[in-house]
Design a protein around this nucleic acid. Structure first.
Lengths: 187, 187
DNA sequence: CAAATATCCTTAGCCCTCTAAGTATATGCG
DNA sequence: CGCATATACTTAGAGGGCTAAGGATATTTG
């Protein structure tokens, strides 16, 4: 009986008192992984990996952007984009093209197949979102969004400062300046 | 001039209107990665990887638990725990021991070295947390925590239902029942 | 103009995580 | 008891992310 002192109680303890200043980060991580898994499960039924969703989502919203711009918008490093794009090219979702006067940049274009996924996949994300926020009202969600944006901003500023002039993942809000020339005319 | 229509505006568009039902998930993911990077940068200066932090944090709070219980508390699959523990064993942070009557379970114990990291590392997490929530008041943070917990719960329920009787990552709140026998007497 | 610098894509290799499948040990039931 | 099932750890392989470093092309500047 002495051992049963740590039943459901342990897990509660875990959230309430253990490593207090890490709880929020832990919650956010758990939520993120939960959202990821929920979407991943659904995407998998359509043969699309979670990694590809990230990039497709951006391309549906602005086809034909440079690979680097795609990285920035996705918030990942170039090699990540590179391998994902290569894989999606092999799957026939995208094409990599170059413009006549430019042998440096590679522009990523959706194929009809890639384009057609949008109608199938976006509803899945909407479903996951709806499930996740069930029972929360608009006001709560808006507040959370604000808080998250503030945190993202705080952390980006910290990175700027800590990294000095090193290169690192550009926070989403820094990206704009670099984008002007690499974007499609307009959707 | 026509091209400059998509300057900072594009990135704003990205957050405000693109793929509306994915925004919240995206924000949460970004926040999670921001928190992760901030901590990772600091841990790296002490020679500790982000992956190890996850497990050390749990062990500091309850040394000598079974490997499976450690997986559950960390919210990851057994192989993840296995390789992390192996690596930490090699680094001299933990020891893997078995109890006389039990040749199945492996119990993970902190070494003095592993134990000593707590005082160095926990402040780093506290610092990151403090930076992240700068400018947010207690009430906002509490509200966000509540909302995140609700979302985690919603998503876990979805997984329960979708997966049926399949094996999957146990949501944190499901873990308690499995833990009774695998835990240390009490810290 | 030519050299230095910056930018973009690519390659290589590592970390963390997962799924699937295998092995060994406990446990439960006829 | 002895077999079937469940549990715990391990192995193998893959996905997705990162950093570091290299090669090619543009751009800037002396």
């Amino acid at each position: 009986m002495s051992k049963r002192g740590g039943l459901a109680q342990v897990i509660q303890h875990h959230w309430r008192e253990a490593v207090p200043d890490d709880r929020l980060a832990h919650l956010i991580k758990d939520a993120s992984r939960g959202l990821g898994r929920a979407l991943q499960m659904r995407l998998a039924e359509h043969g699309v990996s979670f990694g590809h969703w990230t990039f497709l989502r951006i391309l549906w919203n602005g086809d034909g952007i440079a690979q680097r711009a795609l990285s920035d918008l996705a918030g990942v490093m170039e090699p990540t984009t590179f391998s994902a794009v290569k894989a999606m090219e092999k799957l026939g979702y995208v094409e990599r093209r170059q413009k006549p006067g430019d042998r440096k940049q590679v522009f990523i274009h959706l194929t009809p197949l890639g384009q057609s996924l949008k109608d199938k996949l976006v509803p899945l994300a909407e479903e996951v979102n709806a499930i996740a926020v069930e029972g929360l009202d608009e006001r709560e969600i808006a507040a959370m969004r604000q808080a998250l944006l503030a945190m993202i901003d705080n952390l980006a500023r910290d990175e700027d400062q800590a990294a000095g002039d090193n290169r690192r993942i550009p926070s989403t809000r820094e990206v704009a300046g670099r984008l002007s020339g690499a974007l499609p005319s307009r959707k």
